[in-house]
Amino acid sequence: MFKFWGALITAALAAMPAAAEQVVVERDTALYAEPRLESAQVAQLKKGADGEVIGKSGAWLNLKLQGVSGWLLSFNVRFQVKQAEAAESAKESGSALGRLFGPRRSVNVTSTIGIRGLEEDDLRQASFSAEQMRQLEQYAATREAAAERAHAAGLAAERVEYLDGRPQ
């Protein structure tokens, strides 16, 4: 019984955005009644308009803004940088001058906010690891194993043309 309610609650949470996501319209675009380009246009949005995401379907976002709601293709908006992160970035810039002139260009390795990944110098100075390469090769999957796993996950190959019209 608990399991049932747990599953139900999980499903409800998954269906619902955890928090309202704010987006800014990146370029002038229509807002559609449904997530299809053929559906009715309910509004014309201008670059810079901001709205709130209330749902998602494939490449489409369901947006609420200025008293209307409708659908648009996600690449026409940008998600706003999260407040917490903006605060981190401001902290990173350090001095009052940094705040005036924006974050310092991150040309060095230690002024970053903590997470440091592979950088240019690490790559330029990298040397071959035979042991790691042996491991990499050991994990390789055969075509058959890959296809079997894909089918088990409910995936089936589809025919889709390249976007630049080159042959398959």
Binding site: D122, L123, Q125, A130, Q132, M133, Y139
Partner: peptide, 11 residues
Amino acid sequence: IAGRVLGAAPL
């Protein structure tokens, strides 16, 4: 090249 990247950051 891949082996060198692995030298900088292992699996």
